[in-house]
Amino acid sequence: MNLAIKKVPLYVIALILLVFTGYPFLYMISTSLKSRTEFFEKPYSLFSSFTLENFKSVFEMGLSRYFLNSILVSVIAVVAVMLIAALASYPLSRMKFKLNRVVFLLFIAGMMLPIHATLIPVFKLSQSMGLYDTVWALLGPYIASSLPISIFILTQFMQEIPASLEEAAKIDGCSHFGIFWRVILPMLTPALMTVLIYNFIHLWNEFIFALVLISSPENMTLPLGLQDFKGEFSVNIPGLMAALTLASLPILVVYLFSQEKVVKGLAGGAVKE
């Protein structure tokens, strides 16, 4: 009994934090299920009605286009980053050469870089390459800005792989590329998983490059499209909430199914085990 009373403050704090972190999501989802008139009558009621009208109108306004653009860009960029970063991490973590440290630090320093310092030149570049206002304009900046953290995660992991494996392959006559493909890459799966999750979520949510490099609605990614919706939905708040719910859904679903992996992935290189 005494012990149970002692725990009351703990439960109170835990519940306050639960409401603080979770309530906005309940509000978002429950508002998205209300009709407009109901929202004005009872703006605070939770799950008082369940209409899918808003979701329908959101799709009619072109949300699916934003979805497709976001999927296209994030998937291509993430796959490219995984491959390019893994290739670069191999010599950086497992071969001795003069500029190793310099090249490594140059990449890693990118994690500290404010994107703004590259914004205007990247904008000019995409204009001069004729990519401005296409989804393809985003690929280069997305891959480049994801490289530092990815190389950081992968080199850390690769250093742990014992050299004996590599030497055995070398004796069998494997070239460095052979070793990379057949020995290193298969062992890299957990680290690549981290890289995949971290970059996918970040690129899925990326805003500023999209804001600068894309102007027509049909080429917008989800975050930019949502921002664009804001104007059109200023009087239709349940509609806007439906759009927000849909945009957040894929990541929330992935999270519910593999919570631990997502948490570990999002913590990136910051959590070592």
């Binding site: 972190t21 975050p223 927000l244």
Partner: peptide, 21 residues
Amino acid sequence: GVYFFPFLISTVAVGLLWVLM
């Protein structure tokens, strides 16, 4: 599970949600 939610969704969604709140 719930404590981590806010960090998952895009900042744009977070911003629009809180503007309404």
